[in-house]
Design a protein around this nucleic acid. Structure first.
Lengths: 233, 233
DNA sequence: CAGCTCCGTTGATCTGAATCAATCCCGGCA
DNA sequence: TGCCGGGATTGATTCAGATCAACGGAGCTG
């Protein structure tokens, strides 16, 4: 296996490591292929390996001791699962399940920690990932506080949309997306069909064809007069 | 200044550094005292110093390019503001304003970065803080998705409550708390007075006297049948 | 290939919380 | 001590979205 190939296919985290570090880590790495619905990580379980999502889609959900589980984030290909638990040697704070067929790269947690301690670039990349995940969570908080269901749905699509206008494939079940967006599947369906009726997009099963990207962006902006959380001291 | 005094007053972050590192950092540190309403950090501004909140209360808010600002978190004494921006040398992702009169410890960002690079304990504590802040944000997402206004208000009080039953002082303006909880001040008022009417607590201006902590905890649990985000794949 | 099950959609209704609109009350100040 | 101003409270109304319910279609299985 050529190292450079590994780099490109492996996401920003390992890309930041020196070629030697990366080669060492990849030497013992394995690739998992799992079908939709597989539980990849269980909450409150020790973090014995670092997983990088190569392909597919993974949902992160948190169950409070009570039992109610909540979909907290949907991870895109290229991202690493649970860097923090691996580095800090604490149990996973969330469970991860495959929302679509997935390919994952699995690295030994111990080796990764050792590598991060020695390779400053890798350590920095790990911290950047943690900061990024904080930001994603913060963005979601902002979304939930300032945007209504339709706006959140519009924004979700925009985030998924490749560079230019066009169609996106949404492999995840609607219920998972609705949960991530903090609404019921019924509401998501209505929001999506409302956008379609407005002529901004076209729904074709799990493919969404965005006709008017600019209008979709406009829809996704929070209403100016929103008060929730918009108070100055 | 005795170093040990500094430790205790300085929060878990600096407590994790070696005595020498800590002494070196504290040597150039300064203490700020600011009145309520002061903007302590501005979003999109370079992170040139690390601030540790010694006393008071600080609100973190995020303004999207559009302009709508949202209260994203309220920081408790002992916590550090914006560790990630300091370590990664990126601009602040949020603004910070004093929600009550505050005392803050200010350290040079550059010195802190240097210290963290040399002192493994400090580096680990910094990562722990980042992980903790991610978790706080995730908890908030869960709250917003699974709890109604009254439950979120109850939970907020419980988090503030000292070890044993008793009264808490809530120095922040109601509007700021409401924003943090993702509701309007009107709704917060109604939630709080509802809990008072139920006999769980007693409102006395900015002091809240919790009569029945167990019942408050019970109230704060998400309803079992909550569907939002509670779907299995 | 037929049946079944699960997922997504659609409709009707209900409810929690936002909005709009007055007060009320506390703290600061003259 | 009385006035003033802004935050907090309370009430009336409205509305977005949850809930309840039923239906349609796609994919899997026997």
């Amino acid at each position: 296996m050529r190292a450079t190939t590994g780099v490109r296919l492996t996401g920003p985290l390992l890309a930041a490591a020196s070629p030697e570090t990366r080669a060492a880590l990849l030497a013992h790495a394995s690739v998992l292929t799992v079908p939709r619905g597989t539980t990849i990580l269980a909450q409150d379980t020790p973090a014995d390996r670092l997983l990088v999502l190569l392909q597919g889609s993974v949902g992160l959900s948190n169950a409070e001791d009570g039992g109610t589980a909540t979909m907290v984030e949907i991870i895109a290909a290229g991202d690493a699962l649970s860097i923090a638990p691996v580095l800090l040697q604490v149990p996973h704070a969330v469970s991860a399940v495959a929302l679509a067929p997935c390919r994952l790269l699995a690295l030994s947690a111990e080796e990764f920690r050792a590598a991060a301690a020695l390779d400053a670039g890798l350590m920095r990349a790990a911290m950047e990932q943690m900061a990024r995940q904080w930001r994603l969570m913060m963005d979601q908080v902002v979304d939930l506080k300032t945007r209504d269901a339709t706006q959140r749905a519009a924004r979700f699509l925009l985030h998924r949309l490749p560079a230019q206008r066009g169609a996106v494939d949404i492999p995840e079940p609607r219920g998972a997306i609705a949960a991530r967006l903090g609404m019921t599947p019924e509401s998501l369906s209505r929001a999506l069909h409302g956008l379609e009726a407005a002529g901004l997009l076209r729904l074709q099963g799990r493919r969404v064809d965005v006709t008017d990207r600019a209008a979709l962006l406009r829809v996704s902006l929070p209403r100016a007069g929103a008060s929730q959380g918009a108070r100055r001291v």
